[in-house]
Design a protein around this nucleic acid. Sequence first.
DNA 1: CGTGTAAGGAATTCTGACACG
DNA 2: CGTGTAAGGAATTCTGACACG
Lengths: 75, 75
Amino acid sequence: MTKKKVIQIGVVSELTGLTERQIRYYEDRKLIFPDRSKGGVRKYSFEDIQAIIDIHTKLSDGFHTVELRRMLAGS
Amino acid sequence: MTKKKVIQIGVVSELTGLTERQIRYYEDRKLIFPDRSKGGVRKYSFEDIQAIIDIHTKLSDGFHTVELRRMLAGS
DNA sequence: CGTGTAAGGAATTCTGACACG
DNA sequence: CGTGTAAGGAATTCTGACACG
């Protein structure tokens, strides 16, 4: 485990300026790995938030999620 | 502002081992000051969590909330 | 491909109150 | 006093799908 995952998606959305849809999609693409509450609610860490920002920046730079996943693997 | 208040009461409850009732009561007694989302949901910082633990410890030591509030003022 | 949205349901939180003591 | 609980409502999140392209 890296850091405490205690932040919900609404707050992550505010902090990153991204929509919940985008944040959930990055998880679907296996770029981020939030925890889940018993009820299934996603919980993020501040590290996750930073990763999400990085992901979005790179997507804006023209990268695709598949490439970003490879970058994750090769680190 | 001290630190980012992004954690919801359910997580605070897990992290402190206290009930939501206790956490809300400490706020009612003006010992902690969480933020609120637009919808009215409480948001706590890690500092708040530490404060909550301290409060509960002192209550266990026999102090009353009124005394704890005075201790806050005199610091 | 990455993101928007409407849809219905489920998890989470909120307040005010009654209870004990 | 500090905390438990049942009650009803409201805010938040979840999933799967259709859309565009």
